[in-house]
C-alpha cells in the first residue's frame, strides 16, 4: 500500500516537527539512507555516462571493411585482375592498379600464370607469385604510375623510378625516394583468390643499383616521364 492512502491523522504522533528536526541533527550509525541513495544515484549516472561515451565512440568508429584499411580486402583471382585491366599486359607482369585498395597488383613470375595459395604478412610475395604495392611514393606521397614503355613505376612528382615490382633503382639519377615502394600483407586462398590486408603495410627495402640482382632492368632506355 502506498503512502498516498495514509491519512494525516494516521501519522505516528511522536514525529512532530521538533522530533524530526532533532532526528535530522542526530548522526546515523553506519550508512544513512540519504548517503546510500546519493551514492547509488551518482554511481548510476556515472555508469550511464560511461556507457554513453563508450557507445558513442563505438558508433563513430569508422567501419573500414570494403574500403582502404580493410584487413581482408578482396582483389580476386588472377583472371579477375586480367579482366579488370584487359587493356594492360597484366599477364606479362605489368602492375595492375586498384584504386579502392590503393594498390598495384603485380605478378612476380609471368612464366607461372597463377597466384599460389598461402599467406605472406611481410608482403614480399615471392612464394605467392604476387606482390601488392602501396600506391604512396616513399618520397613525398605522390602516386607513381606504371609505364607501358619500360614496365617500370615512375613517380610524376620528383621522378623516383621503381622496377615493376616496386624496387627503387639506386642513385640520384633515378629520383629522390629513400627506399622501394611499401607492400601490403597478402593472402591467396585455395581457389586462387587474392586478399590484401590494407591496414598492414611493410616498408620497402633499400634501393638496388641497376645491374645488380634484385632489380628488373627497364624494357626500354626511355620511360614515360
Amino acid at each position: 500500500m502506498s503512502n498516498y492512502h495514509v491519512q494525516p491523522i494516521d501519522r505516528p504522533q511522536a514525529l512532530t516537527t521538533e522530533a524530526l528536526k532533532s532526528l535530522r541533527e542526530h548522526p546515523v550509525q553506519g550508512m544513512s539512507r540519504r548517503r546510500l541513495l546519493r551514492i547509488s544515484l551518482g554511481g548510476g549516472i556515472a555508469l550511464w555516462l560511461t556507457e554513453l561515451a563508450g557507445g558513442s565512440l563505438h558508433f563513430l568508429w569508422p567501419n573500414l571493411s570494403g574500403g582502404f584499411g580493410d584487413q581482408h580486402f578482396r582483389i580476386g583471382t588472377l583472371d579477375d585482375v586480367k579482366i579488370a585491366n584487359s587493356t594492360l599486359p597484366v599477364a606479362a607482369g605489368f602492375p595492375a592498379y586498384f584504386s579502392e585498395a590503393r594498390a598495384f597488383i603485380v605478378l612476380i613470375d609471368p612464366a607461372r600464370q597463377a597466384f599460389v595459395p598461402g599467406e605472406d604478412v611481410k608482403g614480399d610475395g615471392t612464394e605467392l607469385n604476387v606482390r601488392a604495392l602501396y600506391q604512396r611514393c616513399p618520397h613525398l606521397g605522390c602516386k607513381p604510375n606504371a609505364c607501358l614503355k619500360n614496365f617500370w613505376l615512375e613517380c610524376p612528382c620528383h621522378g623516383s623510378r621503381y622496377d615493376r615490382l616496386g624496387v627503387k633503382a639506386a642513385g640520384d639519377k633515378y629520383g629522390p625516394a629513400p627506399r622501394s615502394m611499401d607492400r601490403f600483407a597478402v593472402t591467396v586462398e585455395a581457389d586462387g583468390t587474392l586478399y590484401l590486408n590494407t591496414s598492414k603495410i611493410t616498408l620497402g627495402p633499400l634501393p638496388v643499383a641497376l645491374g645488380q640482382p634484385g632489380i628488373i632492368p627497364p624494357k626500354s632506355p626511355t620511360g614515360c616521364i
Binding site: L60, W61, P62
Partner: peptide
C-alpha cells in the same frame, strides 16, 4: 585520427564528420 577522419585518409566520411 580514425575518429576524426572516419577513414584512413580524408574522404566523404571526413567531410560529413
Amino acid at each position: 585520427k580514425l575518429l576524426l577522419l572516419g577513414s584512413l585518409e580524408v574522404g566523404q566520411n571526413t567531410l560529413l564528420r
